[in-house]
Computed example of a mutant assay.
Amino acid sequence: MKKIGFSGTLDPITNGHMWVIGEARSLADEVVVFLSQNPVKQPQFPAEERKQIIEQSARERGWENVQVVIVKSDYTARVAKKHGADYLIRGIRTTADFDYENLIQQTNVDVLQGAKTIFVMPPRDLGSVSSSFVKALEGPVGWNWTMKKFVPGPAYRAWILSWLRKEWDGLWEHAGAAVPAGLIDHWFEHLTSVQAYGGAERHYHNLDHLVHGLCEIRAWAANTQASQHDMDTVKKAFWFHDALYERDEAALFSNEEASAQLWLGSSLDAGATAAAVAELIRATDHFQAPAIDHQLKDVMLSVDLAILGQNDEVYLAYTHAIRQEYAHVEEPRFREQRQLALIQLRAKAEAGELFGDPYFAEQYNDKAIDNLTREIDALDAGRQGS
């Protein structure tokens, strides 16, 4: 078969969609993705951006024989024939899917004289994956780690950047004209770029970390009836606390102090508000933290440590990311230093002092002890085996 088509809104494209495209590649020399631009629907991303995401996802897998065509105000089956595709391919997950797709197939052929349809059945692990399923994951703490399993990398990155943009803009809505729109745009682009959390070498202190922390802050505020002002103050600090992350031991300032200075120089806030945010950023520096007295210090530190109390899958991903971030450290030294740090953290958790804020202590302390113990044991076994 020379050419086969695959159609859909693909908002976002999922690993299930990618599997169907992969099946199409095994049947034809060329695959055309017909991307529907339906004016009735309100997609997360405009058609042109979805097209770019699909193209990037295909390139990421080395698929050079996949092209994307945006369909505007026409039937996909008819457009497919115009592009030389006599067949469309569709994934069938359930009998309900078959009944619906069979009706569409009959309409495409009998009424529209368009392309015929080939049905394929996805593997069990992708059987429930759809765009609507993925969209429904957004919101609660950890949603990004879950979504990451079901969409290709470019779709995931686009989605969390969209989510982060809404979070960022929400911080300044109440400020009115006090903060120029250009300044807001500039700092969002900077913080999410390769210069900060979007950097390729940011294996842990990256966009994932940023999304997770902001969700933790939102959950804390909702469950403790914290004021909007307090929530925004912690969020601003979290946006900047790891903005600068260098490994230069000869640097004049610590990463946290450099990030605090970056915040103070941003002109996003001024006066006492700016100073309060800077103090919270400094609170994440274990050298400066003991001297800092701020009513939200325990919250800020707890948000930063919340990753220690996550489920097994997320915690394992975190430990792998930390190792990648310290890839420049030789294995024996890394194991030794990491184990010492974890033993100190576990001792604090066992003493009830790891999470200074009661909400986080209740949520994560017991699980943190389990996670830390498991990693300490694994590091110890690795040291003995080396």
Rank of each mutant, 00 (worst) to 15 (best):
F98K: 07
F98V: 05
F98Y: 14
F98A: 10
F98T: 04
F98M: 11
F98G: 03
D99Y: 01
D99M: 06
D99Q: 13
N102G: 02
N102Y: 09
N102H: 09
Q106S: 10
Q106P: 00
Q106L: 07
T107R: 03
T107A: 10
T107K: 00
N108H: 10
N108F: 06
V109K: 10
V109P: 06
V109H: 02
V111S: 12
L112C: 02
L112I: 08
L112G: 01
Q113W: 00
Q113A: 09
Q113E: 12
G114V: 09
G114L: 01
A115D: 07
I118W: 05
I118E: 06
I118M: 05
I118N: 12
F119W: 07
V120Q: 05
V120E: 05
V120N: 00
M121Q: 10
M121T: 14
M121K: 07
M121H: 06
P122A: 11
P123S: 02
R124W: 11
R124L: 14
D125P: 15
G127S: 13
G127E: 14
G127M: 14
G127K: 09
S128H: 10
S128I: 11
V129S: 07
V129A: 04
S131Q: 06
S131I: 13
S131K: 02
S132T: 15
S132R: 13
F133P: 14
F133I: 08
K135C: 05
K135I: 02
K135F: 04
A136V: 01
A136C: 03
L137G: 11
L137I: 14
G139Y: 05
G139T: 03
P140L: 03
V141Y: 08
V141A: 11
G142N: 01
G142A: 04
W143Q: 11
N144M: 13
W145Y: 15
W145E: 15
T146H: 11
T146I: 12
M147G: 01
M147E: 02
M147I: 05
M147W: 00
M147C: 09
K148G: 04
K149N: 12
F150H: 13
F150N: 09
V151N: 07
V151S: 07
P152V: 11
P152Q: 08
G153M: 06
G153D: 14
G153L: 09
G153V: 06
P154Q: 02
Y156G: 01
Y156M: 08
Y156S: 00
Y156D: 03
R157I: 02
A158F: 00
A158D: 04
W159G: 07
W159E: 06
W159L: 14
I160H: 01
I160N: 05
I160M: 12
S162P: 04
W163M: 04
W163Y: 13
L164G: 02
L164I: 01
R165V: 03
R165L: 13
K166Y: 03
K166H: 08
E167L: 08
W172N: 06
E173F: 00
E173C: 00
E173D: 05
H174S: 15
H174N: 14
G176I: 09
A177F: 07
A178R: 15
A178Q: 14
V179H: 10
P180K: 10
P180W: 04
P180A: 14
A181K: 08
G182F: 11
G182D: 15
L183N: 10
I184N: 01
D185I: 07
D185W: 08
D185G: 03
W187F: 12
W187R: 11
W187E: 08
F188N: 10
F188Y: 13
F188D: 15
E189V: 13
E189L: 12
L191A: 00
L191D: 02
